[in-house]
Amino acid sequence: MRLEDTLLKELSEAHGISSKEDGIRKIILKAVKDHVDDVHIDSMGNIIAFQRGSGGAKLRVLIAAHMDEVGFMVTGFDSNGTIKVRNVGGIDGRLLPAMRVEIGDKKVPGVFTWRPIHVSSHERDVKKVDDMRIDIGVDNKDAAKGKVKLGDMVTFVAETVTMHGPMVRGKAFDDRAGCVQMIEILKSGPYPVDLIAAFTVQEEVGIRGASVLVEAAKPDAAIVLETTASHELPQDEDEPDQTSVTKMGHGPALYVMDRLTIYHPTFRKHFEDTADKYGIPYQYRSPQYAGGTDAGIIHISGAGVPTVAMSTPCRYLHSPHIIMNLDDFAHGIDLVRHVLTDLTPDKLER
């Protein structure tokens, strides 16, 4: 699979910080409308696309991937025209010095200021985001307010490019990669099962969009498409935190457990069996350092939903430059297509 053949470049370069996913919705609606029977936006802002199944199995499967990305929100202005922000979602404070950003719908360019090393070399503690400021090139508060509004979202600036072979680089693959996988899955439907494809909002601020899916969708099973960490930097082999979590190029990663979910054993086995049957590589994500996915709320919604999460391994998540392997990404699409085609009710029993 080549970068140019997917929507990945367009979607990952678009701006869509949690609760401000409008730009992403626009692209996705256009991409899916000819491949689904119905599409609507719910009151949270989730896109819910329905694709009627072709078979008699009558199972309803919810697939979810989140549209939002992490970033910052404008919280105030200094008299000298610099801008105060707070982060939306989890961001490592060590990334901020000298970072380039774009602010608001007009994409006003700005930079995080940084005290020159000549006067700050003794400062080793990471500054809190409250103590960082963005400079947009103006000299007073009124001028700043003329360009940027309170509450405007601040986005990383990064181009999506091919690095080498299947390795691509860009921002917001978490989780636009999952969104693109879902679009590709819808394109090659219908499947024997009914598909409810949910492009969710606000995952990064507490899996909020996914919290409202199950009541309306009433699914028999759910699949969450995500990205997950691949930590392959060289490490001391005697250090306790030496797991790479996943390995790039070893296929999509399934989950046994993360902080919010213990994944459904038989449904998970169906993924394994399907991958083995069609010769699709897959790996398990180590339970170590495993935060959570939209599955965390989906699987305990209502009377419970058998749920599996599958992630494309990525390096440097939540940074402006995420690296991903397009082969892993493509294998993930392939696996879910087969999983849906071969899904029968006995695969969901305990």
């Binding site: 306790p240 030496q242 797991t243 046994v256 180590s286 170590q288 495993a290």
Partner: peptide, 14 residues
């Protein structure tokens, strides 16, 4: 739960 098996065959866990 086993989260990692190191090169010497010791197991880390969550």
């Amino acid at each position: 739960m086993v989260s990692h098996i190191d090169r010497k065959g010791y197991l880390r866990f969550e």
